[in-house]
Design a binder for these strands. Sequence first.
DNA 1: ATTTGTTCGTTCCATTTTGGAACTTTAGCA
DNA 2: TGCTAAAGTTCCAAAATGGAACGAACAAAT
Lengths: 115, 115
Amino acid sequence: MKWTELDENWCPVARTLTLVGDRWTLLILRDCFLGRSKFEEFAETTGATRHILSSRLKRLVTAGVLERRPYQDRPKRHEYVLTEKGREFGPALIAFRDWGKKHMPVRRTATATKE
Amino acid sequence: MKWTELDENWCPVARTLTLVGDRWTLLILRDCFLGRSKFEEFAETTGATRHILSSRLKRLVTAGVLERRPYQDRPKRHEYVLTEKGREFGPALIAFRDWGKKHMPVRRTATATKE
DNA sequence: ATTTGTTCGTTCCATTTTGGAACTTTAGCA
DNA sequence: TGCTAAAGTTCCAAAATGGAACGAACAAAT
């Protein structure tokens, strides 16, 4: 089954997933809620390739979850900010955060271990 | 960046995504909350291929979100049921559902339109 | 005894999507 | 002029996916 077919699904969860049902998209939204808004910031903090970042941001803007707006002229630069629709997605991320805090402890690696 | 690297991420959202950050996994969990528990049920209602279903269920069981347990002998059959850890993921799905109900209206297609 | 049906997968392969890095454009600054 | 920064785009090899067939293990029907 293709993902585009899901947007006519009877289930609201399924329809939601057509838009935000992938890792990078959710990480981008997390960033937005943390106040980040620039392409380069997303690239650094999410670890997504610029390629994927570009396509995901486009999708979110098209869907009306983010708004792409200029924050300076010459050189023209844009930033991505949450719309009302996007802000209302907050509770979902809170739920993910809380569940992660409780059930997904940080796995330390050799390099991450200090002390 | 590889996904496996995210599980040592400082962010609990990111760590959560290493486990449930894909569409099929979340649809499977939705099914579980709706009371479904069998492989064939998941296959039909999520639309995921048996291949993907198999790998996702394994991951969820390994992570302790689902428990694979026999519900009959001869022919041996198993079902997948939410553990306490899995049940605590409910609020996240509720948030997805609510957001979807409000912001992702069903897109009707020609065949779906009747009357 | 052979065929059919059910459940739960595994295997195979062509198509998509990713990851990773380089390249482009526009413009300020030294 | 050369260097840096932001925001993408392009390219290609590697990984994930979809689609459908195949397999095992047993029950029920013919």
